[in-house]
Design a protein around this nucleic acid. Structure first.
Length: 601
DNA sequence: ATAGGGTTAG
């Protein structure tokens, strides 16, 4: 990458750029394709591509030049480059490079096509993947197990699980033997779609020689790690632990990935102590925790509200020679934001650059949400403008956070602008966005605007979920339009929607507000009949309704019911009881009837 | 030269 020295005036620019981690961009941009020598290509392909990390600008510069070279380079050189771009997960770049190879009249070979097919599948475009399979046959090639494994992965990513399983069974008839990687891909597809138990079942069958037996491979470490992770993510940590023991029996030694997955699973179900002892066990067994392991621990601590301990782990990892990465910083920043220390988070954000760590969209999203939660929507907007100025592409999460924050601060006009801006950025609103808008309009005295949006959504055939209806029902209730609310509520079954505890609580609140306590009570009974369990909010709402009408008997009855169901009263329950008692001397006689929480068992 | 596993944001 040697280049003639820039004029000295550029020195400060360079040092600033170095700080921002953009050194490679600075040096690469001025290089015209014609400046790249054959030996530079050779080095790039044989060393940089093989080692993995290459940057996109770099790759495209070489690619552009390689296309123009005369005599043409062999296709295998392009395969090296494309393979490396694919390894860096820049799958759409692979596809556009393929098209340009094609246009340049170079002939892709079987490997090129396999890389292309794999990229299509990773982009969740299995249809395109099959089109490439067609090309493979047309060109007289035969797909191999790599081809088929990629297709299975694609089907898994698209959520087409039964297709993936069916396809796996067909591979033999198509002239290929699945191997352990194909098997791993299949069970990973199952696990990622919430069928970890099914994956486990297949695993057992394979061990006992049933219908999936007869393969010439054995489950290995990676397959175990896939299942352990999948089971953990479904909350079946006990089954994951069984598999972990099974590995020991089968003499498959767990590695850092298996340990990290299990530690993650334990932390997620609150078994923090067990997670910690597993961490100690892995260190004892000489398995080095890596950056991912530390990130999992840091995240667990942050979510527990122990940010101080979490940053302790950050220091520990640095001490052990593991470099914190973008995950570590983003996680810690989020932890700080959860504690309301958004200024500290911002400070950490600023310090990242000095530590040579470039931030990403998620860093911005974390901070923007942090500001919004502190009701500092202005600061959030400032940060948003900064990210756009610096060339980071905001995501739907950015906009959903901003919208939430703006509405919370009552800045309806800014929220409208933000929504427009979102569409200008080419981002399609999702159901979350619509719920934020509906809720935001309702809570800021713009019911008409909310209803207009709602009706437009219905007309344009959007699949509205129960949460959307909850926003609208709540808005209508709070605006006193109880009749419209009831009518809308009654249409839910026709739309195939099942009211949730939130829906019922909204309705109960609406009836209580109007003093229609019998209707509120009936709604309470109805939800119980339909198998929807009331929660603390439901109880508080209904009790508040009765209390406002001085109907202490019903309040006490509900308190008893709450106690029977082992609900612990919260501040709202307590203030309700106090209000009731302070209203009238008569109510004091009820005092003995009020259950003492928590009820002894 | 191409295929499988663990971490962050609503």
């Amino acid at each position: 990458m040697a280049r003639k020295a820039s004029p000295s005036s550029a020195a400060t620019t360079i040092s600033r750029t170095v700080q921002r981690g953009e050194l490679s961009t600075l040096f690469l941009k001025p290089i015209k394709p014609s400046c790249i020598t054959a030996s530079q290509h050779e080095k790039f392909l044989k060393i940089d591509c093989k080692n993995g990390k290459i940057n996109t600008t770099d790759a495209f510069n070489h690619f552009d030049h390689m296309l123009q070279m005369q005599p043409a380079l062999p296709i295998s050189s392009f395969n090296l480059l494309l393979g490396s771009v694919a390894k860096n997960k820049h799958y759409s770049d692979v596809i556009s490079m393929y098209h340009r190879i094609f246009e340049a009249n170079l002939v892709p070979d079987f490997i090129t096509l396999n890389i292309l097919l794999n990229s299509c599948c990773n982009l969740k475009k299995v249809g395109l993947g099959f089109a490439v399979l067609g090309t493979i046959y047309r060109r007289g090639y035969f797909p191999n197990i790599v081809t088929f494994t990629s297709l299975i992965k694609g089907m898994g990513l698209e959520g087409k699980i039964s297709d993936a399983v069916q396809f796996f069974k067909k591979i033999v008839r198509l002239g290929c033997q699945p191997n352990v990687i194909t098997w791993g891909t299949l069970i990973n597809a199952l696990c990622r779609s919430g069928y970890s138990e099914k994956a486990l079942e297949l695993h057992r069958k394979m061990g006992s020689g049933d219908d999936v037996s007869g393969f010439k491979f054995q489950t290995n470490l990676v397959c175990y790690s896939i299942m352990i992770d999948g089971l953990c993510k479904e909350g079946s940590v006990d089954k994951a632990k069984e598999l972990f023991l099974e590995m020991e029996e089968k003499r498959v030694s767990p590695d850092v990935v298996v340990y990290s997955s299990l530690i993650h699973g334990l932390c997620d179900v609150g078994e923090w102590e067990e997670g910690k002892s597993l961490f100690i066990k892995m260190v004892d067994q000489g398995i080095r925790p890596n950056v991912v392991t530390f990130n999992i621990l840091i995240n667990a601590l942050c979510k527990e509200g122990k940010v101080k301990e979490a940053s302790g782990f950050l220091d520990l990892m640095i001490q052990r020679g593991e470099n914190p990465d973008i995950f570590s910083f983003n996680t810690l920043m989020d932890g700080l934001c959860l504690e309301g220390k958004v200024d500290d988070a911002r400070e950490l954000f600023v310090s990242m650059a000095a530590k040579g760590q470039e931030c990403d969209v998620i860093s911005y999203n974390v901070l923007i949400k942090g500001y919004c939660n502190c009701r500092r929507a202005d600061d959030a907007m400032r940060l948003y403008k900064e990210m756009v100025r610096k060339g980071y592409k905001p995501t739907i999460i950015t906009f959903n956070s901003l919208l939430t924050g703006l509405f919370q601060d009552g800045k309806v006009g800014d929220a409208r602008d933000c929504f427009t801006d979102m569409q200008l950025h080419g981002i399609t609103p999702d159901s979350c966005t619509y719920n934020i808008l509906l809720d935001g309009f309702c809570k800021n005295e713009c019911l008409a605007e909310a209803m207009e949006l709602f009706h437009n959504l219905e007309k344009s055939g959007h699949d509205l979920d129960i949460e959307t209806f909850n926003c609208v029902l709540d808005g209508l209730c709070k605006a006193g339009k109880l009749e419209t609310t009831t009518e809308l509520f009654d249409t839910l079954p026709l739309k195939g929607l099942v009211p949730t505890v939130v829906t019922y609580s909204i309705m109960i609140h609406g009836f209580c507000k109007r003093g229609q306590l019998e209707k509120a009570s009936n709604m309470f009974l109805e939800m119980e009949e339909k198998g929807c369990a009331p929660n603390l909010v439901t109880f508080n709402t209904l009790m508040r309704g009765f209390s406002n009408s001085d109907r202490a008997t019903e309040v006490i009855e509900l308190l008893q019911k709450m106690a029977e169901r082992k609900f612990l009263p919260d501040a709202s329950t307590a203030s309700l009881v106090i209000d009731l008692l302070s209203k009238d001397e008569r109510y004091k006689e009820y005092l003995t009837l009020i259950p003492t929480f928590p009820i002894q068992t």
